[in-house]
Design a protein around this nucleic acid. Structure first.
Ligand SMILES: [Zn+2]
Ligand SMILES: [Zn+2]
Ligand SMILES: [Zn+2]
Ligand SMILES: [Zn+2]
Ligand SMILES: [Zn+2]
Ligand SMILES: [Zn+2]
Ligand SMILES: [Zn+2]
Ligand SMILES: [Zn+2]
Ligand SMILES: [Zn+2]
Ligand SMILES: [Zn+2]
Ligand SMILES: [Zn+2]
Ligand SMILES: [Zn+2]
Ligand SMILES: [Zn+2]
Ligand SMILES: [Zn+2]
Ligand SMILES: [Zn+2]
Ligand SMILES: [Zn+2]
Lengths: 377, 377
DNA sequence: CTTTCTCTGTTTTGTC
DNA sequence: GGACAAAACAGAGAAA
DNA sequence: CTTTCTCTGTTTTGTC
DNA sequence: GGACAAAACAGAGAAA
C-alpha cells in the first residue's frame, strides 16, 4: 500500500485501523506476523469457488457488489464541468442534480444514472445541494501564510557554524521539497546534498548503529531456513526485480497477482505461493502480508482482505466532481449519503423519532438506549 | 481507541496501519478475529518477568524507554508562552533554543533540558530554528472561505418540498454541528430532530433491514457458547456498565486494566481474562481486541501491542509549543528530529554522501542502491 | 464528552 | 554464554 | 514517480 | 434445507 485518496468537497478523508484474533494452538507455533519487503501483494483473488466466477469477475464491468473483488471498471464518472475556474469570491457554486440512489436500486441503475444526471427521475428522498469544487483537482491547499511555522521540512541541515542565514530568512527557508524533478539522472535531494556535503561534517558523535549485515536481505546471514517470522514475501520481491517482458516501462504491479508453485488445495481456491510457509499461513486463513498477521474466520474473506494492502481504490463516488474512491463497496454506499442527505435508518421505538445516516450510528443508538424493536422504552 | 492527536507546527499527522502473520495449525481452529464491543482494553501490562518491574513502572517518572509501558508522567512540558496572541501578520515568531538531544543522551537528559531550554549547552549538531505556534492550541483552522464547498456535514436533512431556503443561504446552511452542548438533558441532534420529525416522513421506501434480534448483544440468541469469533470482550463491557465505587464521575477507564478470573500461567505473566477463549488467544500470542486478531512472535510484545488500541498517547514531544504525542518512544525519538534538523544517518559508501533524518529512509536507500557498508559500489 | 464519517471482519439476505 | 530491558531498525504506509 | 514523516512488529544492543 | 454471492451490519476508530 502506498496511500493517496482523492477527496473533493468532502472533508479530509479519515483513516482507521486495528483488528484481532482468536485461536487455540500452542505458543510459538511459528504463525506470527510475517516480515520483510512487500511492495504490492502477490495473492489476489486466486479463489473461484464458483467455477465460472473468476473469468466473470475479470470481464464484467457493471453491478459490482459490496465485497466482490473490485475491478477498475466501476464508474469513473467524467466531470462535466472540469475546467471551470473559480473566482476570487468564496461562494460555492451550487448545482443540483437528482440522482436516484435508492439503496436497493443503486447497483443496478448506476449506468442509467449517468445519462440522467441533470434531471431527477424519481426522488423518493430529499436531496442536499451538491456544493462541489469546480475542478476535478483537489481543493486549493491552505495558503502557507495562514498558519505560522507550519513547515519545518526540507530545511535540511542548517549549519549554524558558518551559515548565518538562520535568523534572517526564516520564512524563505521553507522551500517545497516535494517536487519530483530530476536533474541529470539524479534525484533532487541527491543534488542538494552533493552541494553541501563534505563541506562540513561536524555533526554527530554517535551515529546510529548501522548494521553491518543488511538485516532486510536474506543472503548468507542465517542457515536455519525455517524461521517463519523472517519469511520474505519473495514472490513480490522477484516480481519487483524482474523487468516485464513485453514492456519497457517498468510499471509497478499494483495488485500483486503473481503466483508461486505451492498451490492451495482447498475447495475452489486457486491461490499459490512461493514458499511452504506462505501456503501454510494461507491455509490457516492468516494474512501473509508483512506486518499484518491477521487471522480470519473464512478462507474466502482472507482473500478479500488482501485489498487492504493494495494501492488500488477501484470504487469511485458517482457524484459529479467528487473524487472519493474506495476499496469497499459499503464505504462507497454510505459515502454517497453525504451527497444525498439520505438518513435511511429510523428508530422504530415509540416516541424516539431519531434517524441516522450511517448504520454505525444507528447501531450505537440502539445499543446505548436499548431502542431495539420489540423492546420499546 | 478513539483518536485525537495534537499537532502544532508539524504537518497534519499521518496515519499508518497493517501487519501480518505466519503459522501452521489447521484451518478453522477457532482462532480468528474476535468480535464484539470493546471500549478500552482490559489487558494492560499484567506481565512482569522481572519481579520488581511492575511497581517500578508505575512509580518511575523519568528515563522512559522505547517500548516500555508508557505512563502519563512523560514530560508534559508547560508552554511558557501560552497566552501570547498572534497578530494579523503571518510572520512566524522565531525563537531559538538549544537543546541537547543527542540520541544517546536524550532519555537521560530530558529533565535537565527543560531548565536549560534557553541556553544551548552542548550542540554537537546544528539546530534548525524552532518556528513554533505562539499558543499551546492547534494551529488556526483553515478559514472556511479558503476552500469552496468544503463542508457538507451538518446539513441534516434539507427538505426540498416545503423548505425553500436551499438556493439562498447555501453558505449559512453550514452550521457547526460539532458542539457537544446539551439542552435539558437531551443531545443536540435529538432536539433538532424533534423539531423537524414527523413533520414529514416522505423519505425512504426501502429502509434497511433492521435486525429484529440485536446482533451485538449476547443474550439468548445462541446456545453453543463455544464460538470464539463472537466472543465478547466482556470484561470491558462489565467495567463500562459498572459505576466506579469511589467516584460519582463515571470516568472512562482509558487503559483497560480490569482483569478476569482465567489467569495466564506463562513465565512472568500476570494477565488474567474473563473467558477461557480470551485466555487461549492470549497464550497463543494473539490480540484479543475485537477486530484485530494479530498474532505475534513474543508473549511480551503481545502485551505491549495493546497500546495500539488504547486512547492514551502518553509520550509528549519535549519541544516548546509542540503538542505532538505518541504511543511509541521511537516515534517520538524520530519526531524530535523535525525540530532539531538532525540527520544522523550517513551513508558510508564511497562517493555517496547522502544523509537521512529517518532510519526508514536510510534503510530504503541502502536497499535500493545496495549501499551497504562492506559492499561499496 | 459530542457528531460525522470511513474501514473492515463477520453476519444476514437473496437467489438458485 | 544466559536473561532481560532499552533502543533501534526496517519495513509499511499516509500525505503532499 | 518523489520526499517527509509516523507507526509498529521484530531485531539488535547493552547491562547484569 | 443446501450452496454461494451480494448486501448489510456492527463495531472500531479518526477527525473536528
Ligand atoms: Zn505498500
Ligand atoms: Zn504481500
Ligand atoms: Zn474544495
Ligand atoms: Zn486457499
Ligand atoms: Zn518450496
Ligand atoms: Zn493483511
Ligand atoms: Zn462523493
Ligand atoms: Zn431510538
Ligand atoms: Zn476505541
Ligand atoms: Zn479489548
Ligand atoms: Zn501552526
Ligand atoms: Zn500471558
Ligand atoms: Zn470461565
Ligand atoms: Zn490488537
Ligand atoms: Zn514536536
Ligand atoms: Zn549511499
Amino acid at each position: 500500500m502506498q496511500g493517496t485518496n482523492g477527496s473533493n468537497e468532502e472533508p479530509v478523508p479519515r483513516h482507521a485501523a486495528a483488528i484481532d484474533q482468536s485461536s487455540p494452538a500452542s505458543v510459538g507455533d511459528g504463525s506470527e506476523v510475517p516480515r520483510e519487503t512487500c511492495t504490492t501483494e502477490n495473492l489476489r483473488n486466486g479463489m473461484t469457488f464458483n467455477n465460472d466466477n473468476e473469468v466473470h469477475q475479470e470481464i464484467e464491468s457493471t453491478n459490482r457488489s459490496n465485497e466482490e473483488e473490485p475491478t477498475s471498471s466501476n464508474i469513473t464518472l467524467i466531470d462535466l464541468r472540469t475546467s471551470v475556474s473559480i473566482e476570487e469570491t468564496s461562494t460555492a457554486e451550487v448545482l443540483r442534480s437528482g440522482v436516484n440512489l435508492d439503496n436497493e436500486m443503486q447497483q443496478e441503475t448506476q449506468t442509467a444514472n449517468r445519462s440522467n444526471m441533470e434531471e431527477p427521475i424519481s426522488s423518493n428522498f430529499t436531496l442536499l445541494e451538491q456544493r462541489s469544487c469546480a475542478s476535478n483537482e483537489e481543493c486549493p491547499e491552505v495558503s502557507k501564510e495562514t498558519c505560522i511555522a507550519e513547515d519545518l521540512r526540507s530545511g535540511g541541515e542548517v549549519c549554524s557554524s558558518h551559515d548565518n542565514r538562520e535568523l534572517e530568512n526564516t520564512e524563505s527557508t521553507v522551500v517545497d521539497s516535494r517536487s519530483s524533478a530530476r536533474k541529470g539522472g539524479k534525484r533532487k535531494r541527491e543534488l542538494e546534498q552533493e552541494a553541501e556535503e563534505k563541506h562540513h561534517y561536524e555533526g554527530f558523535i554517535k551515529s546510529p548503529c548501522e548494521g553491518l549485515r543488511p538485516r532486510g536481505r536474506k543472503e548468507a546471514t542465517s542457515g536455519s531456513g525455517n524461521d517463519i517470522n523472517k519469511m520474505v514475501d519473495a514472490t513480490e520481491k522477484a516480481r519487483k526485480a524482474r523487468k516485464p517482458s513485453d514492456s519497457l516501462v517498468p510499471r509497478k504491479d499494483t495488485k500483486e497477482k503473481t503466483k508461486g508453485s505451492h498451490r492451495c488445495d482447498l475447495e475452489g481456491c486457486r491461490m499459490s505461493f512461493r514458499t511452504k510457509a506462505e501456503l501454510r499461513l494461507h491455509k490457516n486463513n492468516q494474512c501473509p502480508h508483512p506486518g499484518c498477521g491477521k487471522k480470519f474466520s473464512s478462507h474466502k474473506y482472507a482473500l478479500l482482505h488482501q485489498r487492504v494492502h493494495d494501492d488500488e481504490r477501484p470504487l469511485k463516488c458517482p457524484w459529479k466532481g467528487c473524487t472519493m474512491s474506495f476499496k469497499w463497496a459499503w464505504a462507497r454506499t454510505e459515502h454517497i449519503r453525504v451527497h444525498t442527505g439520505e438518513r435511511p435508518y429510523k428508530c422504530k421505538v415509540e416516541g424516539c423519532g431519531l434517524s441516522f445516516r450511517f448504520v454505525s450510528d444507528f447501531s450505537r443508538h440502539r445499543r446505548k438506549t436499548g431502542h431495539y424493536v420489540n423492546s420499546p422504552t
